[in-house]
């Protein structure tokens, strides 16, 4: 698998949305959405319900047509892929025939992907469903269905994974297993594009984040880069006016949140400390807040009005 990905190269595994617009009647689900998903990294796709995440993924996978723009995998539309299931593994809300066993379901997907039936046992073991292989899928729990969906996605040994809410319904062990699997997949050069509401899990798993709101791109880039831009530092000081004035010359945004308290954004605690030192302001304490992904997400989607 790794050799194949190296041979294909980066561009062959890159996902690109370019000015994608999707309208359903009067409703605009996506509005000139552009973003890139790089191979070798795990990219999280974040947004509130109805923000356009699933629509973007469906457009990418050819299940719907964009009103304008292009959604490409390796420079090609999904329809143009010679071996779709061997290129892209997807977990959307594909269903299962409830009376079919997990093994039979995967046997059909293996035939669709054009891979040997022996792959069925491999992926059953990979997702921990070997014991349940002959059970009817209708009797499966949500977590087991998620595992089966993941097994279906990877049975063709694809180089790109597109996963819509893959952590849903998984128990902690399942989440850990999936996290390790995705990391290994990306480390071997694969492209992982996943949406999730579990922001804490995304913070642990993903390298990059694409944030979308009302069909529009809000932010895209490494998760690490998002934190300094949005994290806040609450500073308790005996000289709030002096420190606020000193911080004005930096790029800081300062909000007066009490007689002896400032909320500072856009600069690190080191910059705040140096400004205080230079101005002779006495700092009683500093506390970072909002550096978790949930706060970042909230700030980006609903930016708080700050007062200098």
């Amino acid at each position: 698998m790794a050799m194949t990905r190296q041979r294909l190269g980066d561009d062959a595994l890159r996902i690109s949305f370019s000015n994608v617009t999707k309208r359903y009647g009067a409703v605009t689900a996506l509005d000139k959405f552009s973003a890139d998903v790089a191979p070798g990294r795990i990219t999280a796709f974040l947004g509130a319900n109805g923000s356009g995440k699933t629509t973007s993924m469906r457009l990418l996978l050819g299940l719907a047509d964009p009103t304008a723009g292009t959604a490409l995998v390796g420079g090609r539309t999904y329809h143009e892929l010679a071996h779709p299931l061997r290129t892209v593994g997807a977990v959307l809300d594909q269903g299962f025939q409830p009376n079919r066993s997990a093994r039979n379901h995967l046997g059909i997907v293996a035939a669709q992907a054009g891979v040997p039936a022996g792959r069925v046992d491999d992926v059953l073991e990979l997702v921990g469903l070997t014991e349940a292989a002959t059970r009817r899928v209708g009797k499966f729990s949500l977590g087991m269905r998620q595992r089966l969906a993941l097994a279906s996605a990877v049975i063709g040994d694809p180089s790109v994974l597109v996963l819509d809410e893959p952590f849903n319904g998984l128990d902690p062990q399942g989440i850990q297993t999936l996290r390790v699997f995705l990391r290994n997949f990306a480390d071997r050069g694969g492209t992982v594009f996943l949406s999730s509401h579990l922001l804490a899990e995304i913070a642990n798993s993903a390298d990059d984040a694409i944030i979308i709101d009302h069909g529009r791109l809000v932010s895209a880039g490494p998760i690490a880069d998002l934190i300094p831009a949005t994290a806040r530092t609450v500073v308790t000081t005996r000289n709030a006016d002096i420190l606020a004035a000193a911080l004005q010359v930096t790029h800081a945004t300062v909000e007066r949140s009490g007689t002896d308290r400032l909320t500072v954004t856009n600069v690190s605690t080191e910059v705040i400390g140096r400004a205080a030192l230079d101005a002779g302001a006495v700092i009683l304490g500093m506390r970072a807040e909002g550096d978790d992904l949930e706060a970042i997400f909230e700030n980006l989607i609903h930016p708080k009005e700050l007062v200098s």
Partner: peptide, 16 residues
């Protein structure tokens, strides 16, 4: 039946 159980999506993903 494929539409009912949403397995049609898998069929169209395999053969666009």
């Amino acid at each position: 039946g494929e539409y009912r159980h949403r397995t049609i999506m898998g069929a169209f993903l395999a053969q666009p």
